[in-house]
């Protein structure tokens, strides 16, 4: 049962990833990426990571992709005329580099899959909200608080970068 679910989700994920890369319309690419993220969330569920599956849908497929679609709408990007126009050598080199990366990853994961520890079945149930929160708010509390600062800095930085004209504060009396 689990293998069928995995194959179904994996085929959808790979197909939507290819559809994202090979799509001329930017909006369609973004929607393909949403499908990809949702299927990845299903795969997280297969791995008993329920909390991260929910977070994946909320943060990635929800918040980040809405941001992407807003930017696409704001910039009014035209569809590309052709994906493969010129620079044949560049595409050849890209695919070559991609296959080198793929072979390298496959080679490196080939050595680790037989080194896994034997774990009991109750250790498989680790991804619940209770288990994640228990570790997150004790061992990783400092990192968690630093994340808040990071997000605040990101929002302020994005406002500064995307602002049309940074106002000079010469008028204001200090």
């Amino acid at each position: 049962m689990e293998i069928y679910l995995f194959v179904l989700l994996a085929v959808i994920a790979i197909a939507s990833a290819l559809g994202m890369v090979l799509n001329k319309s930017t909006v369609n690419s973004a929607l393909m990426l949403v499908i990809n993220l949702v299927t990845l969330s299903g795969i997280y569920l297969l791995l008993n990571a329920q909390f991260l599956a929910l977070i994946q849908i909320l943060v990635y497929a929800g918040a980040i992709m809405v941001l992407f679609l807003f930017v696409i709408m704001l910039l009014n990007v035209d569809d590309e005329q052709s994906l493969f126009s010129k620079f044949r050598l560049k595409y050849f080199l890209s695919f070559l580099l991609g296959s080198v990366i793929f072979a390298q990853i496959l080679y490196s994961i080939g050595g680790v899959t037989d080194m896994l520890p034997q774990i009991s079945s109750d250790m498989l149930e680790i991804g619940t909200v209770e288990a994640v929160g228990d570790v997150l708010y004790t061992d990783y509390l400092f990192t968690f608080e630093m994340t808040a600062i990071l997000l605040t800095a990101a929002v302020v930085g994005a406002l500064m970068v995307a602002q049309y004209q940074v106002k000079k504060d010469e008028d204001s009396e200090v």
Partner: peptide, 30 residues
């Protein structure tokens, strides 16, 4: 993380998600 029975990998993914959110905001602003 799942196959080692160790939660630390999922905590790392949680932080990676929040960094990805920050990175998406700044990248789209750029």
């Amino acid at each position: 993380s799942a196959f080692h029975g160790d939660i630390a990998g999922q905590i790392l993914v949680f932080f990676s998600l929040s960094v990805a959110a920050a990175e998406a905001v700044v990248g789209l602003a750029i």
